[in-house]
Amino acid sequence: MVRIFGPLVGLFFAAALLWSFAVGAINMIREPEPMTAVKEYHLAPKEDVKFAFNGAFGRFDKQQLQRGFQIYKEVCSNCHSLKQVAFRNLTDLGYSEAQVKTIAKEWATKAKTFDPKTGDTGERPNTPADHFPPVYYAGSGSPPDLSLITKARHEGPNYVYSLLTGYTDQPASLIKKYPDGKVPDGLYYNPYFANLNIAMPAPLADGQVTYSDGTKATLDQEAQDVAAFLTWTAEPKMEKRKQTGWAVLGFLIAATALAYLSKRTIWADKH
């Protein structure tokens, strides 16, 4: 009896799942999801921008990473933190230890100190061992920490680049969809942002910085450089990971070939 009852219970639940799936599919066909303003105007990240680290053999361009760090230091660090990165990690970008010490010491936001005996707090200059100190933003909203932003967003580097270069005027057809036909106050239109309107004004423009290596600072160049730098902060070991991957792949190919030859030898037909 139990042997008969068990399969019947399984068939009942399987039938219930199939029925639920069929009902859901039919409802979606009969009543397609309405086209919202966000879905109508939202754009996927641009795919035409190419980075030196793309592909299985890609590597970071240290000159580009230094330019991206300059963008972060002079523009982005006013609002956004980089808490997961230590100053000493900047040696991976080609900076000397002396340069890193100077960067840490002269950083605008100082490290916090706390005396457990007196309960007093204070500040001290940063050292290479310190992480980039958090930014205390005085405005409304809470700007995200950028340490892992390219891993937290779909197509991270391309998303950052698209967002930074995507600011434009509100389409007239979209303005008509707002309540009372008014654009939301304090927001800026960007079709690459999730809900089209972002609280951050366009941070970059042509000539926003003066690159120390003489590169012309166009909006496109600045956006590519800071996107590359933020990819490095999120994946500082990317190059080593790729190198390890190729070594493992080579080992697997060699091991497969040896296994095949062993099989041919051990199980060869005896005549």
Rank of each mutant, 00 (worst) to 15 (best):
F60W: 15
S77F: 07
G141M: 04
V75K: 03
P144G: 02
S147D: 01
G119K: 13
A138Q: 13
V100I: 05
I26H: 11
P133I: 01
S81A: 12
E40C: 09
E97V: 13
T36D: 07
F132P: 11
K50Q: 11
M35E: 10
P32C: 05
S140N: 12
N89H: 15
R59A: 08
T118C: 07
K73G: 03
N54G: 08
L146T: 00
Q70N: 02
A152T: 08
K151A: 12
E33S: 10
D120F: 13
C79S: 09
F114N: 04
D61F: 06
S142E: 10
R88V: 05
V100A: 01
V49E: 10
A37I: 15
P144C: 06
D115V: 08
M28K: 15
L43D: 02
K50H: 14
W107Y: 13
W107K: 02
L146N: 04
G58D: 14
D48P: 09
P116T: 01
E97Y: 11
G141S: 07
P45G: 05
H42W: 06
V49Y: 07
G58V: 04
E33I: 11
N89G: 04
R124W: 03
R67P: 00
Y95A: 00
P116K: 06
K105L: 12
R88H: 07
G68V: 08
D120P: 01
Q64S: 15
L65V: 03
I26K: 13
A52T: 15
K101W: 08
P125L: 06
Q70S: 09
R67I: 07
D115Q: 04
V38P: 09
Q66L: 12
T91H: 00
Q70L: 07
T150I: 05
F132Y: 12
N78H: 11
T113E: 07
G141W: 15
D92A: 08
I26L: 15
F53M: 14
A56V: 14
K101L: 01
N27Q: 09
E33G: 02
N27G: 09
A98W: 14
F87Y: 04
Q84I: 00
S77G: 02
T91S: 03
G139W: 05
H131W: 01
N78E: 00
V75H: 03
Q64H: 07
K46S: 08
T36C: 09
R59H: 14
T118H: 11
H80M: 09
P116V: 03
N78Q: 12
I71L: 05
E33A: 13
R153Q: 13
S142L: 08
A86F: 04
K110E: 03
A138E: 13
T91L: 01
N126H: 11
Y136G: 00
N89T: 07
G141H: 12
F87Q: 02
L82D: 01
V100L: 06
G139A: 05
R30C: 10
P45I: 02
K50S: 12
A86H: 10
K151N: 10
C79L: 11
S81C: 07
K117M: 11
F53C: 05
V38C: 05
E123L: 10
P134R: 12
T36L: 06
P133K: 04
T118G: 09
N54V: 06
P116G: 09
Q99R: 13
G122L: 06
Q66F: 10
R153M: 08
G68S: 12
F87L: 01
Y137M: 06
A152G: 09
R30F: 14
I26R: 13
P133W: 01
H42S: 11
G94R: 07
N78R: 14
V38R: 12
